[in-house]
Every structure is written in C-alpha cells, then in structure tokens.
Computed example of a mutant assay.
Amino acid sequence: MFAENLEQIESLMTNFAIAALFVLIGLAIQDVLKKGNVPKFGRIAVWLVLFLGMLGFIAKGIIQFVLEAQLQ
C-alpha cells in the first residue's frame, strides 16, 4: 500500500513543507516590519505580495488537482 501511494504522499508532504515555509517567511517579515518601523503603506504592500504568492501556490494546487482528475 505504501509503494502504491508514494507519489501522493510525496506530493502532500511537499505541499505541507511549502506551506510551513510560507508561515516562517510571514513570521520573519512581521518581525522585520515591526523592528524597522515601516509605515502602514509599506506594510500593506509587503503583506499583499506575500498573500498573492500564497494565492498563486494554492491556485497551482487546485489546477493541478483538476487536471489530474480529468486525465483519469
């Protein structure tokens, strides 16, 4: 059973690792923004870019899931 699902397990673990990386990047950015005394507009711009990157990652996963479902 493990060998049959190895590709799915690898894909899932990669997605979790990338999600954890986004969280760590967000925590680092929050710390830098607080210590750097960044104005509100700058903070909004930084968080918007981070959110759009995460949104692209989620969209990629959804598109990949839909395409793989159609091929089967």
Rank of each mutant, 00 (worst) to 15 (best):
M1D: 12
F2A: 05
F2H: 11
N5P: 06
E7Q: 05
E7W: 04
I9M: 03
E10L: 06
E10P: 00
S11N: 14
S11P: 09
L12C: 01
M13K: 05
M13Q: 10
N15C: 00
F16Q: 09
F16E: 01
F16C: 01
A17F: 11
I18Q: 03
I18F: 02
A19W: 07
A19S: 13
A19G: 08
L21D: 14
F22L: 01
F22R: 00
F22W: 06
V23F: 00
V23Q: 02
L24T: 07
I25V: 12
I25M: 03
I25K: 01
I25G: 03
L27F: 11
Q30G: 02
D31A: 05
V32L: 01
V32W: 02
L33E: 13
L33I: 15
L33V: 15
K34M: 10
K35Q: 06
N37D: 10
V38I: 15
V38G: 03
K40Y: 11
F41P: 08
G42C: 03
I44Y: 07
A45N: 08
A45E: 11
A45P: 12
V46P: 07
V46I: 14
V46L: 11
W47D: 07
W47E: 12
L48W: 09
L48T: 15
L48G: 14
L48H: 08
L48K: 04
V49R: 05
L50Y: 06
M54H: 14
M54N: 14
L55S: 08
L55C: 06
L55A: 15
I58S: 05
A59S: 07
G61M: 09
I63Q: 00
Q64D: 15
F65K: 07
F65Q: 07
V66Y: 12
L67M: 14
E68V: 15
